[in-house]
Design a protein around this nucleic acid. Structure first.
Lengths: 221, 221
DNA sequence: GCAAATTAATGATTTATTCAAG
DNA sequence: CTTGAATAAATCATTAATTTGC
């Protein structure tokens, strides 16, 4: 497609590119993770993902963060449209024996939404998503407040360290991603907790070109 | 107000607090900056502000970021309400010669909005803000793409370093805040460029309690 | 074929809502 | 009830596809 996604990480060249242009591999992997149920990765997760994807081209945490934001949102709106079309098609072709059997469970057919732990695994796709906006998950617990979000940048200084709160609920860090490079899709699992641990601090202090130009503009208070 | 805003930075105590509780001084300063026209501080600005405010109590970049977000939004909605009330009061007192002169330019009268450079100085408050949502500034230039935003956290590793892009346009870092503690309001200025520089890396590596528990969950791709 | 002109995708920001601590 | 925090929705802006005239 395009040449090779020349980035600005190179030593000599000035910063030329503007926005991240993911490689096909990166996209595939991100989609894979998405399919696995990841929607709003935590800060840690973003770090990990970023590290991994760095093997396939330039990428930053904020890119991962944005990707999930956008993908989730656009997936949602796509589905919304589909549902809408479906409904319309249905309404225009009346007299369809609407007798859809009373729904195996007790839930009302249509307009339901799964609690979607959002940070965990999804039961997988569907989830009809009706036209208008409905309430979202009831914020069941306090689940990892230190959300990814936040990513993006930080120019100078690595000074922050958001207390990884985790208000004493659940584990220290949620169990996640039992999947491995083998590509074997495993089904659901409520708390598989695979303590694999193979992050291998890769981008440890890769803060390239920290020009320490911290003295530039001043704030007057 | 409250005891002393006990934070989790202390050596012994575990992380107890939940949300930032700004001191009166911090609030005053933030409001001061807001009055000076700051609305969406850049990453650098947030860093600077944070550093300054740290003298008056615990605070993080994300707190500053959120504060401006919220303050801006709530200021806006407050004004919206006021404008609405104003308009309503007007509509209920009809026969008001609505003949607003045909507008000097060719634009339609009403529903105007100031370009508001947003990252620079504001002409100061008002700016009627009509009830419904209207278009916003035309993104006149490319101004500092690496927006503040982003703040919040980053748990472990200081690995990122957002290339402070600035696509070759303008200066390296935009000239900002020529204001000094004196409080002298100066008018507009397109590029004042006050190279004051007195950040004094304060929170350099204050990343307390980095448990390096980086090995916990793994990502399977 | 190919380069300018359009259009479609999608990365990056900003704004609006919502949740919940105090 | 105020407001810090977090997420979703709406936009903006840039890059890739695709089309069009030559």
């Amino acid at each position: 497609m395009q040449t090779e996604n020349m980035d600005m990480g190179g030593p000599g060249g000035g910063q030329v590119n503007s926005r991240w242009n993911p490689t096909q591999e990166q996209i595939s992997m991100l989609e894979s993770l998405y399919k696995q149920g990841i929607r709003t990765p935590s800060a840690d997760q973003i770090q990990q993902i970023t590290s991994r994807l760095k093997d396939y081209g330039h990428i930053e945490g904020k890119n991962v963060f944005y990707w999930f934001q956008n993908h989730k949102a656009r997936q949602r709106q796509k589905q919304k449209q589909e549902s809408l079309a479906y409904i319309n098609r249905y309404l225009h072709k009346p007299h369809q024996p609407v007798f859809a059997r009373p729904c195996p469970n007790g839930v009302v057919c249509g307009s339901y939404y799964l609690p979607q732990s959002d940070l965990g695994f999804y039961p997988q796709y569907p989830k009809v998503l009706l036209p208008s906006g409905f309430k979202r998950r009831p914020w069941s617990e306090k689940i990892d407040k230190a959300r990814a979000y936040a990513f993006t940048d930080r120019k100078q200084q690595g000074a922050n360290a958001i207390n990884s709160k985790c208000y004493g609920n659940y584990q220290e860090t949620l169990p996640l991603f039992p999947l491995h490079p083998t590509g074997i899709l495993q089904g659901r699992a409520e708390s598989v907790c695979s303590l694999g641990s193979n992050i291998s601090a890769e981008d440890s202090i890769a803060t390239t070109t920290t020009p320490s130009s911290s003295s530039e503009n001043t704030i007057g208070i």
